[in-house]
Nucleic acid binder design. Sequence first.
RNA 1: GGCGCGGUAGCCAAGUGGUAAGGCGGAGGUCUGCAAAACCUCUAUGCAUCGGUUCGAUUCCGAUCCGCGCCUCCA
Length: 467
Amino acid sequence: MTPLPRFYNTLTRQVEPFEPMDGRTVRMYTCGPTVHDYAHIGNFRAYVFEDLLRRFLKFHGWGVIQVMNLTDVDDKTIRKSRAAGMSLKEYTQRYTQAFFEDLDQLRIERAEHYPAATEHIPDMIRLIERLIEKGYAYQSPDGSVYFSIARFPTYGRLARLDPASLRPGARVSQDEYEKDNVADFALWKAWDEADGDVAWDSPWGRGRPGWHIECSAMSMKYLGETFDIHTGGQDNIFPHHEDEIAQSEAATGHPFVRFWLHCAHLIVDGRKMSKSLGNFYTLRDLLQRGWTGREVRYVLLTTHYRQHLNFTFDSLDAARAALARLDDFRARLDGVAGTVPPASLPVWAADADGAFHEALADDLNISAAMAALFDVVHEGHRAMDTRSLPAAEAAAVRAMLQNWDRVLGILRPDETEPSPDVVELVRRREEMRAARQWAEADRLRAEILARGWTVQDTPQGPRLRRR
RNA sequence: GGCGCGGUAGCCAAGUGGUAAGGCGGAGGUCUGCAAAACCUCUAUGCAUCGGUUCGAUUCCGAUCCGCGCCUCCA
């Protein structure tokens, strides 16, 4: 009955029907943050996309086991923690906590596992040992270990890159002469002075893991050697995900991941976000400017994930207006439905329900899903205008929207209560209105507005709305 | 240079080989003490440009122009 979801698989560059391997539970891995600073809205675009994916898979009826890694050891975390005079752990814990606070603001559901790299060093070491045993990795004189891409013939398949054409780029560091091939990548990095006291013992001496190996070790630990979905930003396709495939499949001999889903980048005012352009925003920056996490979520959510998202303050304005409309509709629906038990859906709502599910099943076509949502708002208002929406049907529509919000995560309003003085102003305005003292009533309305609330006079009495 | 993505109304953004969803914004009207919200009407003879295929293309093919991403550790 329900349509099988179809997703665009980077591996095949095609939209393919998706079903979990075991038919019931989707196992997915999502590349998480490097906890060296507050995450920016470009990062959160990816996490909101992954949240939509996870919520939709559940909405569709499957279980989900999602793993998101926390990279808490790398060049940046080491450098910044030392600059701050803090231990690595102390430093990364601060930003890990900030990350989870931001996730809550954006209404991003928690994954089942958030493994930290530093807590899985033994898993990584074992994986590297397997690769050495099988001849896919070699130790360099300084004690680093590299993966030999020459030993892995399908290297470059995901990114569609020809390994032979890979040339050293500007960012290749000085110590790379240790490698057999410039495109070989580090599995284990021998300690050097810049690492300070950050080091673990290994069969190859003291050092720390390379970046890619954590994702292979932790994903396979929690999800098995072959799992359903791996996601990330498209900038991770190469080299990160390419390298994950190489080291994982070389070690296990099995396919690593069935579906690779990548989201496109976010740009701001038509340009790449950068500190020098002054268009670089963290979520905290936007909250400080008075935007809500819900509004930011709306903007990040409602552009299809494979489309470049142009983030602007105009788009936040539009989000605020659209959410206000949704809130007004919901409030009106509540007024009609009351506490009556739901009946069956009116035809227009049942149609929209089907369209909503089908839209998301079509590679997460959020635009079409939102169109279905606004069709419901429109038809619902029309029905209520003509008093042709019985309470039981209104209750059914309300229940349907609550169900949709399991996927969208935007319909539930923020709980903001007016302060007692605003409530008092509203009460006095009602008195003035009852006494037909329009000038005074209007003055009070202006005063209420100045305090951030709009008053709507409805048949059920005055209704307050933020801003 | 290699690989890839995109150019649809004022802004954002779906989509289809048969004649352009939706959101924001704007104009007029209904309702309202006045508003707000809602509702009604209007807001792309055209989907970067030029060719081609076709009965018919925004949708397929080719070329051109413009914008963007990745090419070794940025979601």
